[in-house]
Nucleic acid binder design. Sequence first.
DNA 1: GTCGGAATCTCAAGTAACTTGATATGTCGA
DNA 2: TCGACATATCAAGTTACTTGAGATTCCGAC
Lengths: 145, 145
Amino acid sequence: MTKAQESEPPLRLAYLIGRLDRMVRRDLEEALAEVDLTIAQYTAMSVLRRRPGLSNAQLARRSLVSPQAMNQALSGLVERRLIHRPAKPKGRVLAIELTAEGQAILDHLGPLINSAEDRLLAELRPTQRDSLLAMLETITDLRQH
Amino acid sequence: MTKAQESEPPLRLAYLIGRLDRMVRRDLEEALAEVDLTIAQYTAMSVLRRRPGLSNAQLARRSLVSPQAMNQALSGLVERRLIHRPAKPKGRVLAIELTAEGQAILDHLGPLINSAEDRLLAELRPTQRDSLLAMLETITDLRQH
DNA sequence: GTCGGAATCTCAAGTAACTTGATATGTCGA
DNA sequence: TCGACATATCAAGTTACTTGAGATTCCGAC
């Protein structure tokens, strides 16, 4: 037993999550490079698939970034016609939706990102995976009560 | 059942981890602002507490960043005398260690960061917490086999 | 109807935290 | 000795955010 090992505090949630996030992001960036999307853009598109019609502000809040940051991401998607904003909005709020092309890109990315996640979670048993995801949902307030 | 709910795919690991990471980082940044440390610097100091004598390159690999990025973080810590590099290194590799002041700052931050993590994990039972941390360690290759 | 507060959208500018590029130097084995 | 590999660190660039700001819409109170 060396001195370092004797006095080692437990690993912090912050350290573990930070480390895992970097691992996830590296794989994600690699997968997304093929279709020239940023992680922020992919995230927004994924959320829109689940919840069509969300606004820029709502997407920003879900991604925990500022509205401006989200607007930046969405602008690129609008330019590439991967999402669609209503031409005549009712009021200020813009109900954004995926285009067919946007949907197709998500479909294309599905297997790529699935396999990336499978690789990351390879050392966990299936029940552990479910448990992990459930806990993460709980912690991040996304759990369906 | 709305249309969105019917067709909802499961939440991605990437989304959950990204979201949790942002939550963690916000709390961490707030706690660290008091002592004027960045997350990268705090992480390096924490790792050095567990493993005194690691080099810049080793710290970079552990944090999954480039050596230059780590050097940038460490420079600030050297300037503030929170870490110490050997004046006469044996060879190229510099065995970096915490100073007493650096250690004191980590001691001071301990309870702050503990309570931040407790808040984040408040909805999990203690056994779930242990399980979560264990799984995260496994996934990020930090598990003691 | 008016007003004030809150929220939305988006342009603009700035900042932090990385990255890649580059160079000098030490270590080690053939 | 040489080549390959690794380390440390200066330099410059890039990305993904942030804060600042202003115009506009919505809604409730008066």
